[in-house]
Amino acid sequence: MIPHQPLSSPHQHGSAALDRVMIAVSIALIPAFITHFTLFGWGIITNLLITIPAALGSEALALWLRRRPILPTLADNSALVTALLLALILPPLSPWWLLVTGAVAAILFAKQIYGGLGYNPFNPAMVGFVVLLISFPIEMTSWQAPLVNSDHPLTIIAALNWVLFGELPPGILFDSMTMATPLDHLKTELSLHHTISEVRTDGTIFGVVAGASWEWINLAILAGGLWLLQQRVIRWHVPVALLGTLALISTLFYLINPEIYADPLFHLGGGGAVLGAFFIATDPVSGATSPKGRLIFGAGAGLLIYLIRVWGGFPDGVAFAVLLMNMAAPTIDHYTQPRVAGHQRGEMHR
């Protein structure tokens, strides 16, 4: 057995064990879950109650089929992080089969078929999300309205009854509990040739900078992300490049015509940009690895998010942007290999 001892001098041993990184990511998501629960009620909890066992279960099943040790791999908590992300990005109060399909697609098809953690070319949670988004458009656009706009908030029992059996308390229709998301609403209204200043007078959907209630969740995600940066679990390159590019290009178009193109704060604070920047595009497996490559990766994702949001067919584009950049990551890595100490720039390629 080769000892894990660095063979020559300039190596410093990293303390970032995989399970600790994953635990840190999970902890960083806690503020977002608490904010979500306070503003939207039990929907996020029922999502978590189903995605976690579904993700861990499919991971265990795949490992058993592949005759790999089950418990050590489950203990690296990567499936847990996938489940947490899925629960956060899927509509709260999603039916159980939707959540299970998403978790199975993420773990079995995006991760284990490629050989498990470290071999997956795509971010598993994003694959699960996109599979659901293109397969079940109705369920995936039924977003719960914030509690302040809801007359009959569901109890935990009623929420579970809905999620597991599709039954609601008498007199309540599911449609009456749902509402368009801010990005979705903006897209629909703009297609009807309404201007942004007309659209944003609707205080039930739009808040101070972006979506009412949604902006607070994104703030909590931002806090978690900054904590991850401070803990050095993630590096600054991807979040800065992603959010910077998104801010830059949205400012540019906002200055050209503020009545058609939303302001940069709306783009940063609405939808999944913050979550994508700190928690998803920073995935070390499916993203680029060199510092310059990470900047390109983040900038590309930011640009694609804006393009899809403004000119694409879907209200938000974080998942598609990340998957497309995942595809580009090997090429980016190839062209941004850092200079090896002692070599001239470009010497490696010639």
């Binding site: 399909t101 599979v131 293109i134 397969s135 079940f136 458009p137 109705i138 369920e139």
Partner: peptide, 9 residues
């Protein structure tokens, strides 16, 4: 049955 669109695509 709602249909699983992905398998048709």
């Amino acid at each position: 049955y709602g249909g699983f669109l992905l398998s048709i695509l």
